[in-house]
Design a protein around this nucleic acid. Structure first.
Length: 626
RNA sequence: GCCAAUGUAGCUCAGCCUGGCAGAGCAUUCGCCUUGUAAGCGAAAGGUCGGGGGUUCGGAUCCCCCCAUUGGCUCCA
C-alpha cells in the first residue's frame, strides 16, 4: 500500500466518469474541502488488513502531529504499477477509512475518473510518501516527515543515537571536547561547534561565490535544476587537471579504474534494503514503467562489479575506483551554496574489499597517507583542514593503537565522535574538513570501514579454508568532491587577500600561467615565438594583443591572477631577452625564456599539464570573466 | 522544505520610502592614440526593471502569488 499524504489548504474534486463497472453510482457534483489531510492511496497486490491497520495508525499519528483532524481518503491508482484487484482495494479502503483516528474522515469515490484542484500547505510535515509492505519487510518513509513507528530501522536508531564528543591529541590522550582548551585550535573549535551543535553565525556570502564567477570558473545555470553548475573553459581546465592528478594517484596506489551507470532500479533488492538504511533525497527517472534513481555515490556500481568477480583471499584487498561525473544528491534547496554544496558533483570514489577488519585497518593506513599526500599536492596545507573521526566505542577499544597512530601522524588534535552502538554501515570513519571564514565546515577527504554492505550486495570471497565470506569494504575519497576542492582553494585565496597577500591559484592549476604583452603590433611575431617556446615546454601561455595601454593589460593580467607577465618591446626584441613580472613578489626581472621555463617546471613538478583551453590571442577571445 | 533579505544593461550597482521620459561606472563596438609594468581619450550601442496577476489615468516604485540567489533553521550516506 502506498499513501501520498498532503496537508492541504483546500482540495476540490469532481467525478467525471465511471472507469470500472463495480464503481458505485454517484452524483457528479464538485466537492470542496478546506484544511484537510488528503491521503492519496494505492492498494497493492498482497495488501491485507494488517497493512491497513499500520497505515491507519500512521495517518492517525500524522493527524495528531499536524493538528488537523479532517482526513480525506482519495483512491489514487497512479502511485503503483502493481495494484490489487478493484474489489479487494475497495474493501481495504473502506477499512482504512473506518480505522483512522480523526474527528472527521471522508473519502472520494472509487473507480471514477475525477478532476481536482489542490493547494498544499508549506510546512515540514505537509508532504510525505509512505510505503507499507508485508510485516517485517520494512516500510519506507520519504519526504519531510519525522521518523516514527513506520520509519526505517536506521532512522529509528538515529533518533536515539547516543554519542560522546572528544578531542584526541597526537599523544593519544582523549579529552572531553567540552573541557578541551581550543585556544590554539580555533578552526577545530569551529568544526566542533559546527558538527555537534549546528549553530553557526555567518551573515556574509562565502567569498568563493563571487570569485568563481570573476575568474571565469563556474556559474549557476538557471536552465537546469538548482545546484547543477556550468563550468566555463577556465573551470573545466582546472577540473580536468584535478581529476587527472587524483585519478593518476589512486591508480598508482593500486586501484583499477572502472565506469558504472549513473542510474539504478529502485526495485533492485540490494538498493531497496540500502534505501531502507539511508532514505535520502534522490532524483528519479521513469523509463518504460521502471523507476530509476540517479546515483549519489559510486558504491552501487562498484559493489555490483565486485559481486560479479570471483574473489579469493589471494586477490584482496581488491581496489576499484571511479571518478563520478556526476554523483547526484537532491539536497534541500536552502542547503545549496556556490561550489560548497551541490546537487550534481564530481567525486573520486575508491573502494577496497578486504578479508577482515585487520586487513582493512592496514589498508586504511595506506589510504590515509595517500589522502594526506593528494590533498597537500593539490595546494592545501595542513593548517587548511581539520580532522575528525567517528567510531563505535567497541572499535576504539579493539583498535586503540591504530587510532592513536593516525593521531600521531596527523600531529594535531582530532575531533572524535564516539557512539555506544553502531547505527550506520560503518564502524569507523575519518574526514578532513575545510573550515571556511564563515564558520562552515565541509568534508574533503574521507575513508570508512563498512562491515555491512559486503553481505547486502552478495560480495563473496573464498578464504584460505575454502569457505565463502563477505569482505569488509573501505570507502575512500582521497580529495573529496572536485568542486569542493575548488571551493577550498578559492576560499583560501580570498583568505590570503584579507591578510595582505595577493590571492592566487596554485601555478599548476592556473588557466594561464604566462601572459605575453607586446608593446605594439610590430612585436607580435616575437611574442608568438616566445609563446611557441613556452607551449612546447608544457607551459600555458597566451598573448594580450589587444590595442590597449600596457598598464591596462597588466591590470587585466593581475585580475586574472596570472603568475608571470612578459612585456615585449623594442629592447627585448633586439636583445632576445624577456622582461618577466612575477605577480606574487611584484618584481620585474630581465631573463630568458629557458630560465622561466625551468622556474615553472620546478614549481609544477610531478603535476599534470593540459594545454591552454582558450584561443591564444586575447583579441580572439570573448570575455567571460567579470 | 521553513523564516528572512536580495533580484534594474554582459558585470557591479543607483533610482523604490514619497507612483509621472530607464540611470552611472566597468565591459562591448567604432574612431583617435602606438603604448614600458594595476585603468589613455572620444563616441555609439546595449533594458520583458526576475516571472505572473492586481490597484491606479499612469507601476521599476504600492499589494498578492510564483521563481532564483544568499543568510539562518533543518540536513549533509
Amino acid at each position: 500500500m502506498r499513501i501520498l499524504q498532503l496537508h492541504c489548504e483546500q482540495i476540490e474534486y469532481t467525478p467525471i466518469s465511471k472507469e470500472i463497472s463495480s464503481a458505485k453510482d454517484i452524483q457528479k457534483e464538485a466537492k470542496t474541502l478546506d484544511n484537510v489531510i488528503v491521503a492519496f492511496t494505492a492498494v497493492e497486490a498482497g495488501d491485507d488488513s494488517g497493512i491497513v491497520r499500520r497505515a491507519a495508525a500512521d495517518i492517525s499519528s500524522s493527524v495528531k502531529k499536524i493538528g488537523c483532524s479532517h482526513v480525506l481518503v482519495y483512491p489514487y491508482a497512479h502511485l503503483s504499477s502493481n495494484l490489487a484487484p478493484p474489489n479487494t482495494a475497495q474493501d481495504l479502503l473502506a477499512q482504512l477509512e473506518s480505522s483512522i483516528d480523526a474527528d472527521k474522515v471522508s473519502s472520494s469515490p472509487f473507480g471514477w475518473t475525477k478532476s481536482y484542484t489542490i493547494s498544499v500547505k508549506g510546512h515540514p510535515l505537509a508532504e510525505s510518501l509512505r510505503v507499507f509492505g508485508p510485516e517485517g519487510s520494512g516500510d519506507v518513509a520519504n519526504g519531510d516527515a519525522e521518523p516514527d513507528d513506520d520509519a526505517p530501522e536506521a532512522l529509528k536508531s538515529e533518533s536515539r543515537l547516543e554519542s560522546t564528543w572528544y578531542v584526541l591529541g597526537p599523544d593519544g590522550t582523549l579529552t572531553d571536547a567540552e573541557k578541551f582548551d581550543f585556544d590554539n585550535h580555533k578552526q577545530l573549535r569551529r568544526l566542533f561547534k559546527h558538527e555537534s551543535s549546528g549553530t553557526r553565525s555567518a551573515d556574509e556570502i562565502p567569498q568563493h561565490v563571487s570569485l568563481m564567477k570573476k575568474i571565469g570558473i563556474a556559474d549557476y545555470e538557471s536552465a537546469s535544476d538548482s545546484g547543477n553548475m556550468r563550468f566555463f573553459p577556465n573551470g573545466r581546465l582546472i577540473k580536468s587537471l584535478l581529476e587527472r592528478y587524483i585519478t593518476d594517484r589512486v591508480c598508482a596506489y593500486g586501484a583499477s579504474e572502472v565506469e558504472t551507470p549513473i542510474m539504478y532500479d529502485t526495485e533492485h533488492p540490494s538498493m531497496k534494503s540500502y534505501f531502507d538504511r539511508f532514505p535520502a533525497r534522490q532524483y528519479t527517472i521513469d523509463s518504460e514503467g521502471r523507476q530509476f534513481f540517479l546515483r549519489f555515490a559510486a558504491c552501487f556500481g562498484q559493489f555490483l562489479i565486485a559481486a560479479h568477480a570471483q574473489l579469493s583471499h589471494h586477490n584482496l584487498p581488491y581496489r576499484l575506483y571511479e571518478l563520478t561525473r556526476y554523483s547526484f544528491r537532491r539536497e534541500q534547496s536552502g542547503e545549496l551554496v556556490g561550489l560548497r554544496r551541490l546537487r550534481a558533483f564530481t567525486m573520486p570514489d575508491c573502494h577496497a574489499f578486504c578479508t577482515d577488519v585487520d586487513q582493512a585497518v592496514t589498508e586504511l593506513g595506506r589510504r590515509f597517507e595517500l589522502s594526506r599526500s593528494v590533498i597537500g599536492d593539490i595546494g592545501l596545507s595542513e593548517s587548511d583542514y581539520e580532522m575528525s573521526i567517528r567510531l563505535t566505542r567497541q572499535f576504539y577499544d579493539e583498535n586503540t593503537q591504530m587510532v592513536h597512530d593516525m593521531a600521531k601522524k596527523h600531529n594535531r588534535p582530532i575531533l572524535v565522535e564516539m557512539w555506544t552502538e553502531r547505527f550506520f554501515y560503518f564502524v569507523f570513519k575519518w574526514e578532513f574538513n575545510y573550515v571556511d571564514d564563515t564558520g562552515k565546515a565541509s568534508a574533503l577527504s574521507t575513508d570508512q570501514i563498512d562491515v555491512e554492505n559486503g553481505k547486502r550486495y552478495g560480495i563473496k570471497f573464498v578464504d584460505s579454508e575454502g569457505q565463502y565470506r563477505h569482505p569488509v569494504i573501505l570507502h575512500n575519497s582521497p580529495s573529496g568532491a572536485i568542486e569542493r576542492v575548488i571551493y577550498a582553494l578559492l576560499e583560501n585565496a580570498a583568505r590570503s587577500s584579507k591578510t595582505g597577500t595577493k590571492p592566487a591559484l596554485p601555478l599548476w592549476l592556473s588557466p594561464t600561467q604566462v601572459r605575453i604583452i607586446p608593446l605594439a603590433n610590430e612585436f607580435l611575431d616575437r611574442a608568438q615565438q616566445i609563446a611557441d617556446e613556452l607551449t612546447g615546454a608544457n607551459v600555458r601561455a597566451d598573448i594580450d594583443d589587444r590595442n590597449e595601454s600596457v598598464g591596462k593589460r597588466i591590470r587585466q593580467a593581475e585580475k586574472e591572477w596570472i603568475h608571470y607577465v612578459i612585456v615585449i618591446g623594442k629592447s627585448e626584441a633586439e636583445s632576445g631577452n624577456i622582461s618577466v613580472r612575477e605577480r606574487l613578489t611584484d618584481k620585474t626581472t630581465e631573463t630568458d625564456t629557458a630560465s622561466l621555463i625551468q622556474t615553472i617546471a620546478q614549481a609544477t613538478a610531478n603535476m599534470p599539464y593540459i594545454a591552454l583551453n582558450a584561443p591564444r590571442l586575447l583579441s580572439a577571445r570573448p570575455q567571460i570573466m567579470i
